[in-house]
Amino acid sequence: MTPQTKRAPGSVAEVFGAFLKLGLTSFGGPVAHLGYFRDELVIRRRWLDEGAYAELVALCQFLPGPTSSQVGFALGLGRAGWGGALAAFAAFTLPSALVLVALALTAAAVDGVAAAGLVHGLKIVSVAIVAQAVWGMARSLCPDRDRAAIAVAAVVLLAVISGPAAMLGAIGMGMALGLWRVPGASAAGPALAFPVTRAAGLGALAIFVLLLVLLPALHGQGAAFAMIDSFYRAGSLVFGGGHVVLPLLQAEVVATGRVTEDVFLSGYGLAQAVPGPLFSFAAWLGAAMAGVPGALLALLALFLPGFLILIAALPGWTWLRRAVWTHSAVAGANAAVVGVLASALYDPVFTTGITGRTDFALALVGLVALTLWKVPPWAVVALGAMAGVGLALVA
């Protein structure tokens, strides 16, 4: 059964209400979000069955972009058309985005020893969170020697060359090596069907490519165009999970001097403590750069490429899922992404967050809490922030 079976179509208001509940309660990152979606929309509301949901998750994991938000967008689309898709995105994203914007605007007005300690505590927490992400992604995306070698090659490449172009090169290298070394497997079973025509899919693909080419040419036309270009490019390259946006955005906004390292890493730490998509981090960065208008532009620019790619893929998913080479290329790209994130774990996350043995000990406690004690990320963030304040006051 697919989202287009004979079930009565839902309303935009129904979709908004369901995803607002999820946006307020979905802690724990993309994998946890997919579990929340299944419980609420497959098991309880019965919008679609298990097979259709698994197929949708497979598609979104295959594509670049924020997986959980893409799944939510598609579920809203299947339930209530284009209005439902937009309602799902808005309701799932707004709670975390509004909190992060409010915190970003407040943080700009706060100073003193306690505030500095809070920021430092969040930077220490970021070390634990990114280390957990690297380890988890390496276990799932680099299960054999060839893919582990691709990840290491990406780290070596980024040690020699830095910047967004180097990250794009690392991912491209991963795709090429995946085609050469990683066996592919075509999918079987029924394909999903959504109310997206082939013309609409081609149009979405054309818009995606046009913006990717045109926005860099407009980069010098003002701060707004430069911001849109940076966040759109980062959103176009996110393979493997939301944490991968960290090194991409760091290269776009910190390396260019638009946001300080302290503001960047403290916002990344706070993004772990709120429910909803990790991409809401863009709202913090946009607000830090240009207030509420900047938050809106950054948020939309980061999410847009993933949604355009999803719309483009929906009509051709039947063919794409059966092509062996596509699975090999994506497997190689995902392995390279592990290397990209591992490189970011060292610089800027570790080099900026860890300044002594006490910091290292706190980061290690946070990592153990996340991985072995299964403490929720928001609790680890809160405890790390309080520890940072306490150490600053004692010092």
Rank of each mutant, 00 (worst) to 15 (best):
Q250H: 13
L341W: 13
T197A: 06
V340K: 01
G23L: 04
L94G: 03
D347V: 03
K21A: 13
G174P: 08
F27T: 05
V337H: 06
R198S: 15
L299K: 02
S68P: 09
P9N: 08
V155T: 07
W135C: 08
G76C: 01
I129C: 02
P216R: 10
Q4N: 13
D262E: 14
A288H: 12
L211P: 06
A282E: 01
A154G: 09
L118Q: 02
Q4P: 02
A287V: 10
G121F: 00
S236C: 11
L118I: 03
P9G: 09
A131K: 00
G117E: 07
L86S: 01
L215C: 08
A54Q: 13
F37G: 05
M167L: 03
L141Y: 04
V152P: 01
V113N: 01
A128M: 01
G384P: 08
S266I: 01
I207L: 15
L56Q: 03
L320T: 11
A271M: 12
L308K: 13
I171W: 07
G267R: 00
L265M: 00
D229V: 09
R321Y: 12
Q250I: 03
V57I: 13
D111C: 00
S96D: 10
A369T: 12
C142V: 12
T5F: 12
S96C: 01
H219K: 10
A255M: 06
G201W: 05
A313H: 06
I309L: 15
A116E: 04
A288S: 13
P195H: 14
A138V: 02
T318I: 03
A382T: 05
P293Q: 11
A335P: 04
V12Y: 13
W378S: 07
L100G: 00
T260S: 15
L249W: 14
T106P: 00
Q272E: 15
A282F: 09
S96V: 00
A188C: 07
Y53G: 03
F89I: 06
F37R: 11
L34T: 10
A344V: 08
F231P: 07
Q221R: 14
I161V: 15
L75S: 03
A336C: 11
G17E: 08
G306Y: 07
I207H: 05
A193D: 05
A128W: 00
